[in-house]
Simulated assay, not measured.
Amino acid sequence: MENIKETIIEVIKSILPIAIVITILQFTIIWLPLETFMQFLIGVLFVGVGLILFLLGVNVGLLPVGEMIGSALPKTKKLWLIILFGFLLGLVVTIAEPDVRVLSSQVEQVSDGAIPQSVLILSVALGVAIFVAIAMIRIVFNISIVYILAVGYGLIFLLAAFTPPAYVPISFDSGGVTTGPLTVPFIMALGVGVASVIRGKTASRDGFGLIALASIGPILSVLLLGVIYG
């Protein structure tokens, strides 16, 4: 019950500022048609209810399961299994990410279908999946995240030189949308679970940084998509 109350307060604090600003603008500057403004208020209500249910689902289901999976995988003592399930979980969670679907639909609309929604979603999901698998390898072998980030962004700037200009901003936006409300909690919980078991390492040191790594994958995959389509 306390968790529900905290979630409701958190959502209200998130939504209320934008609702207040739009309301002030409505009655001072923009003066939208009454029907449009009422649609906005109804939309705010729906978003609030949806976010409350969504966050409750994340806290009750996704986070505990992510940590349990992360804790169980290292006990198998099979590196390939840790990497495989890191890849698969990164793939399916990204496909389900609402932010990725919003971006892909907007890109398809703006490009007049030149970049299909399904292709962009799959590219972003594969990019995240590959780098979540790399993150699992980093945790197991205690590789410094600095080296992986340096190589990753080095490849990004190299590919950007050969990619049509229209794909560069899309690629960086694709990296941004993977830090959404579904992907972040699950991947972080997975990383913390793995890090808490492997070699007795502290979860605070090795469990974090997964989102930074996961964000590189979509940028690279969309840039490669640009090279292919371009």
Rank of each mutant, 00 (worst) to 15 (best):
P185L: 11
M188C: 09
L225A: 03
P169D: 02
V128D: 00
I4T: 14
I18P: 10
I211V: 14
S123H: 05
S105K: 15
V100T: 12
P181A: 14
G48N: 06
V132F: 08
S221W: 07
P64A: 00
I211A: 06
V197Y: 01
I170D: 04
M38E: 13
F27H: 11
P17F: 04
A72P: 07
G230E: 04
A166M: 13
I15E: 09
L159R: 03
F172K: 02
V102N: 12
V124C: 05
I30A: 08
G50A: 07
V58K: 11
L190R: 01
A150I: 15
G127Q: 09
F172I: 11
I42M: 13
I156F: 10
A19I: 14
T179F: 14
L34W: 13
I83F: 15
K201F: 12
F85R: 04
V92S: 12
I82R: 00
V168A: 09
L16Q: 00
G66A: 11
L41N: 08
E108N: 02
A125N: 02
G154N: 10
P116D: 07
G70L: 06
V197H: 01
R101P: 02
D99R: 01
T76K: 01
F131G: 01
G152S: 11
V100D: 07
L55D: 11
G90T: 01
L89H: 07
S118I: 14
V93N: 02
E2M: 09
R138N: 05
R205W: 08
P181D: 11
V177I: 12
A96P: 00
P165H: 10
I22T: 15
I115M: 09
I42K: 11
R199D: 15
I15S: 03
S111H: 09
L224K: 05
W31Y: 15
A96Q: 01
L149Q: 05
I130K: 10
S104Q: 01
L41S: 11
S171N: 06
N3G: 06
G70D: 02
A129Y: 02
I82V: 12
L155Q: 04
I216Q: 07
L53I: 15
